[in-house]
């Protein structure tokens, strides 16, 4: 999850945020980290670029991007298996 936090910070250019500032279960949007709809699109690109995961259903986004932990769980469950 530490790597994922670093990737989120880099992808969203969260200059003053350190990985340790983001709680594992802290909400990413609105009242939590304060992300918005453009950030959601950036996170979809992040999943594709870094983990080769394409979000099949846009409605899934709300639950997948709830927190770093939910993102990490989704990545673990959906990451293509390497031979």
């Amino acid at each position: 999850m530490a790597d994922l936090k670093k990737q989120i910070i880099e992808q969203l250019n969260l200059k003053d945020v350190k990985p340790e500032d983001i709680g594992d279960d802290q909400p990413l949007f609105v009242e939590g980290l304060g992300l918005d709809s453009i950030d959601a699109l950036e996170l979809i690109v992040l999943l594709q670029q870094e983990y080769k995961i394409k979000l099949a259903n846009a409605e899934e986004g709300q639950s997948v991007f709830r927190s770093v932990r939910t993102m990490a769980q989704y990545i673990t469950e959906h990451q293509p298996k390497t031979v």
Partner: peptide
């Protein structure tokens, strides 16, 4: 032409 980040475009 894939995986384009939206921010720079917007």
């Amino acid at each position: 032409e894939e995986l384009l980040t939206p921010t720079a475009f917007i």
